[in-house]
Design a protein around this nucleic acid. Structure first.
Lengths: 365, 365
DNA sequence: TTGAAAGCGCTAACAT
DNA sequence: ATGTTAGCGCTTTCAA
């Protein structure tokens, strides 16, 4: 690895001053064609790449945006191939794949949000820095990132309120899919309530169902909005409106098994309206194992629009969040606030879409 | 947005010199407890976050690693929610979801490789910079990144040879899932040949199949290795060994429809051995539309181990690449080469695993 | 234990 | 059209 060439090296080789080198890149027209060629040639020969650190120092901006993620997937989900393990010549292992819950979580919506951030960043000429760490050490990890970027997008509930508050004093911050806080930073969120209401109404009106059960949490903001949408739909149809989601089911999404078993015995509703796709998919898997068929015996709907729901059989009817759009909007907001740091927090609520597939009874496989 | 506090601000407020501020963070023990507290308090009050640019400039290292990706998913795949579009009060759209090929591509393996890079980076104390752009403008985009990172991982075929060559002169570079080049940079790849041979042998030996068709490309390195594995298995079983994959099928993976239709008429083989999961899933979808059942009428296998294959019905028997492991290994190599930049290129070939699911006939849904 | 000062690589204002 | 020079914020000798 040759020592990194700097402007000084390029200048010397081209027989000019460092200012001319800089000009050559940033104001080509202000430099004589001949000189320009010489500089470019020298740079090329030396493999010159300008240092982003130096540039950033001068401009007071790094040219990068940050996304704070991680911890969404537990470390145990690592696929068991530690970095160093090499191929043993002995051959190829053959394993029988038991379907665990992992597949429900992996290609989760973060990936698509991330993609949206990437695309928008690159389009805007920013680099994207992904940072993370456990929630516990997030203060430290987040600080590290903050020093490297001009703006930061934060996935839901990754960073404690107070830390968020602090950093948003220093650089623009936008929270994703998290209900906006009064006096909080900018935010991108979606129409949770409207989406849930619409999908519930679909079940009631199009499928004529009346005995609906809401499955999932309602104890944090997004989930609360969704449950509110469910209730609004029931109310609108003159049905009995529950105050809470089925209590036994208000567990962590992937732990509903036992509760569902109970329901299977005590009698099914006409439909399970789930607060998330992950929950819905898990529910369907559990019911399939008990011989309950969807949508023949009971309808099921989800919320989010993750890919797994689309590939599942029956394909999951759900409310799709514009995940890439969320990512793009976040970057959009950051760029705007970077341009005008003194402006007010920006809140963007994006529309959702009811996606009709098989699990509600709309089509058969 | 308050102006960003610097060491100078902190020093002034704490009544010490900037050197002491720096010491406080990097060599706490060399500073009197009392002074330390004062500095920390000042920093806290001022919301001080050290500038990574300045630090990077001093150390000649940025503390970030880069991953050059993008363009894997065509821009058209954006979900149609441009950044700016806000919620119209009119309500929630309801759409019927037609199964297109998009779902096959999205949560592709890049995401999991990316996750591997993330985890390993964070564990090693590096930030991860994701950069990208179309292959056409990759020289420019890649240069931008190179100036920002201490090492760069490059996804297959994203960057032209010569550009790769140039940047690897400046910082450590590792290519992913790309067959290592003589004199090329470091590389992480997998046992394509062995994996394909093993899965083919499974079909031959366990399921007693003899009429196998290889479906997919063989015209770039990875694909060539896979096809070689297929041939080796046939040869080992004393079966007729084709010189090429079925020619009509050697198209871009998601364009096999027409060719398959032809096969459906002219008679099915006992098994389709596909060069990729995406190809296999598309094949299965196409056949399902024609009433051909898997694995009853014909067995199908894939290669890669993407999540969609696991959720699909029938679940896809495949060769799983250790995708997270690939990402981790890449970072591992970079870190090693950063520590010793003059060392030789490192090549790591990771093992794969045959994953038995339903599409080969091993289990019934 | 603390401070003064040099310098990392670059940009941009100012001089020539 | 090109060169000189002063920082950008930080780390790190070297002195005190």
């Amino acid at each position: 690895m040759a020592k990194k060439a700097t402007v000084y090296d390029v200048a010397r080789r081209a027989g000019v001053s460092i200012a001319t080198v800089s000009l050559t890149y940033h104001h080509p027209h202000r430099v004589r064609e001949e000189t320009r060629q010489a500089v470019l040639a020298a740079a090329d020969a030396l493999n010159y790449v300008p240092s982003a650190s130096a540039r950033g120092l001068v401009h007071g901006r790094t040219g990068a945006l940050g996304l704070y993620a991680y911890d969404y997937f537990r470390p145990e989900m690592a696929d068991g191939q530690p970095a160093g393990r090499e191929l043993s010549d002995s051959g190829v292992a053959v394993v029988r794949d038991e379907l665990d819950e992992g597949y429900l979580r992996f290609p989760l919506y973060v990936d698509e949000v991330l993609r949206g951030c990437e695309l928008e960043c690159w389009q805007r000429g920013y680099a994207l820095l992904i940072g993370g760490g456990s929630r516990a050490e997030s203060a430290k990890a987040v600080t590290d990132i903050v020093g490297r970027v001009d703006g930061l997008a934060v996935l839901p509930y990754r960073v404690p309120e107070d830390v968020l508050q602090r950093i948003s004093q220093r650089i623009p911050v936008v929270t994703l899919s998290e209900a906006p806080h009064r006096d909080g930073p900018s935010a991108v969120c979606v129409d949770n309530r409207g989406g849930m209401q619409a999908i519930t109404e679909h079940l009631i009106i199009e499928h004529g169902l009346r005995d609906l059960l809401f499955l999932g949490r309602s104890d944090f903001l997004e989930a609360g909005e969704r449950f509110a949408g469910f209730r609004a739909a029931l109310r609108g149809a003159g049905l009995r409106v529950p105050r809470k989601p089925l209590p036994q089911l208000a567990l962590r999404e992937w732990e509903v098994t036992g509760a569902v078993a109970g329901i299977l015995e005590s009698g099914l509703p006409e439909a399970f309206v789930c607060a998330s796709d992950v929950g819905a998919l898990h529910l369907m898997a559990t019911m399939a194992a008990h011989g309950v068929r969807v949508p023949e015996h009971v309808a099921v709907t989800g919320f989010d629009g993750i890919v797994a729901g689309r590939v599942a059989r029956p394909a999951l009817t759900t409310v799709r969040q514009p995940m890439q759009g969320i990512g793009r909007a976040a970057v959009d907001i950051l760029v705007e606030r970077i341009a005008d740091p003194s402006g007010p927090p920006l809140v963007r609520r994006l529309p959702v879409e009811v996606v009709l597939r098989e699990s509600c009874g709309c089509r058969r496989p």
